[in-house]
Every structure is written in structure tokens, then in C-alpha cells.
Design a protein around this nucleic acid. Structure first.
Lengths: 145, 145
DNA sequence: CTGTTTTTGATGCAATTGCATTGAAATTGA
DNA sequence: TCAATTTCAATGCAATTGCATCAAAAACAG
């Protein structure tokens, strides 16, 4: 079995470290503005994008790549805060639809104010448009399959 | 305040998702081989690279970007498993040196067998050498400051 | 059909992480 | 010098995550 090349190892190491550093910085901003974590934001955003603000837990899971049991409990907490609502899935009693509430939409919007500023500061300021495009392309290749 | 560009938002989203997907896949391999998580590996590797296999907790923290209190307890667990050993730091009683043991080195080595295969499969197979280099360069820019 | 398998979501319990704070030792600065 | 500040690591307690499993409903196979 062949060792991965130095270039690959370096890229992987940087991917891990960069993500940790950036998530740390961004979440610090959100937290100091009194907001919940990016996980909450991710769910709210996916729901907002979904048809009528609704998705099944499985769909959310696939979009945000959380574990099923973690999402289940995250939704419990979000529902308790009035950000989402679970409603029956027509024609399949196993499933459910999670629907974002007005409060949920409002929170997503307020968080975006802080989040987008952080993205500007920590990401946009470090890359040209072209570089951002290249980065997205390279990362897409890594995701494949 | 200006919204981040679509290219930047896309790159950031992919960075998060790609990292989650890859860490998930790689940790699944480690786990199914009976090994601990990448956090353990990261600490072992940093220590192994350090002078005489020793670093202070602060140095580890800076290298791997863990929270101080998490590292403190991770070291507890690793010490309990005989993978590292805490020894006094000469000339400063606040600090300590964490030293990797033979067992720790052996575990790092065995994990590398599985880890490197996973890196090959999930990363090296998806990028050319040139692309890996580009990715590393772009990520470095994001880390700056 | 009807028994088996798969899919979906929840949950008990253990392990880990996050938050806030502490205590001890070193460093700083008047 | 010595009081105030900073650095370093640990820890009590709450929140979250991971693991294993479950129950219910749907899909499948003979």
C-alpha cells in the first residue's frame, strides 16, 4: 500500500485545521452576539430553502450531514424554542415534516447579519473571487461519490 | 455592510460539508478497525514530532486547535491508556510536558496504516498532485492572521 | 396475503464537550 | 519589592454527542 503524497497530506491537514480555525472564529462571533451555533443556523437555512419551509428529517440530515440521532435531538431543542414545528407527513406515518416557523425565519435572518459579516472578515478578505471559485471547485472534487 | 459574494459563500459551504463528509468517512474506517478518533491521532502525531516526543499542553493546543479544557481531559484519557505521560516542566511549575510513550508511538503507527489508506481512498484518489498543492495553498491563505 | 426486511425517527445511557471558574505559579509594573 | 495582572492547567456541572437499540410503519418477497 502506497503512502499518500506529501502534497495530499498537507492539503488534508490544512483542510482540518482551517475548518477548525474558521468555525471557531465564526462561532465566537455568533456566541458573543447571543446566538446559537452554526448547527442551528444550518438547519434553519435548509428549512427556509425547502418547499414551503418544510423538509423531512432525512432531507435535513443529508443536506447538513448530521447524525440521525443528533438531528433528532437538535430538532427537539429547536422545537422547544419555537423555531421549528413537527407536522405529520401525509401518507407515511413513519415520516414527519419539519417546518420552520416565523420565529425561525426571523432568527435565521438576524444570525445572517452576524454570520455574513464574519464570512466577509474571515474568508472573503483572504481570497479573490477567482480563488474562491477555485477552492469551491477543488472541494467539490473531494466530495464526489 | 456588503454581503459576501456567491463564490465565497459557496466555497465556505463546501469547506464545511467536505470536511464533515471526509472526517465522517475516515473516522468510520478508524472505528471499524478498533481505533480511537482522529483527535487522539492528532495529539499522538504532534507529540511524536516534538523534541524527544514532548510538548507542553499549550503547544499541542496551538497545533491541533483544541480547547484548553478539552485537551486537558483528552490527555487524562490518553494517560489512563498509557499513551502519554505528564512530566514536570523544568523551571516552571505551572507548566508540564506531555511525553508520548512507546505504546503511544505504536498506536500512532498502527493507526497510520488505516488512516493513510483512507486518505488515499478518499482524498488522493480525487485530486491530482497539482490540485492537492493548489488546495493547500488556498487553505493556507484562509488561515492567515 | 403474510412473514421478513428495510426505513424512519426516538431514546436510555455513557462519553465527550462547553462554560465558568478555580488555584497555583510566573510576570509585570509602580 | 510586592501587589496586581497574566499564564497555565484542572474541574464541577450542564449541554451535547455517540452508541446501541427500539418501536412503528412501509416495502418487499415468496
Amino acid at each position: 500500500m502506497q503512502e499518500p503524497s506529501a502534497a495530499v497530506i498537507k492539503a488534508w491537514g490544512r483542510l482540518i485545521r482551517t475548518q477548525r480555525a474558521l468555525v471557531g472564529r465564526i462561532e465566537a462571533e455568533l456566541k458573543s452576539a447571543g446566538f446559537p451555533t452554526l448547527h442551528w443556523y444550518d438547519v434553519l437555512l435548509e428549512l427556509k430553502r425547502g418547499p414551503e419551509g418544510r423538509l423531512t428529517p432525512r432531507e435535513i440530515e443529508e443536506a447538513v450531514l448530521f447524525e440521525q440521532y443528533n438531528l433528532s435531538r437538535l430538532l427537539d431543542r429547536m422545537e422547544a424554542e419555537g423555531l421549528v414545528r413537527r407536522i405529520p407527513y401525509p401518507g407515511d406515518k413513519r415520516r414527519q415534516l419539519v417546518e420552520i416557523t416565523q420565529e425561525g425565519r426571523a432568527l435565521q435572518w438576524r444570525m445572517w447579519g452576524v454570520y455574513s459579516a464574519a464570512i466577509n472578515r474571515f474568508i472573503a478578505a483572504k481570497l479573490t473571487e477567482k480563488e474562491a471559485g477555485q477552492l469551491a471547485t477543488l472541494l467539490l472534487k473531494l466530495m464526489q461519490d
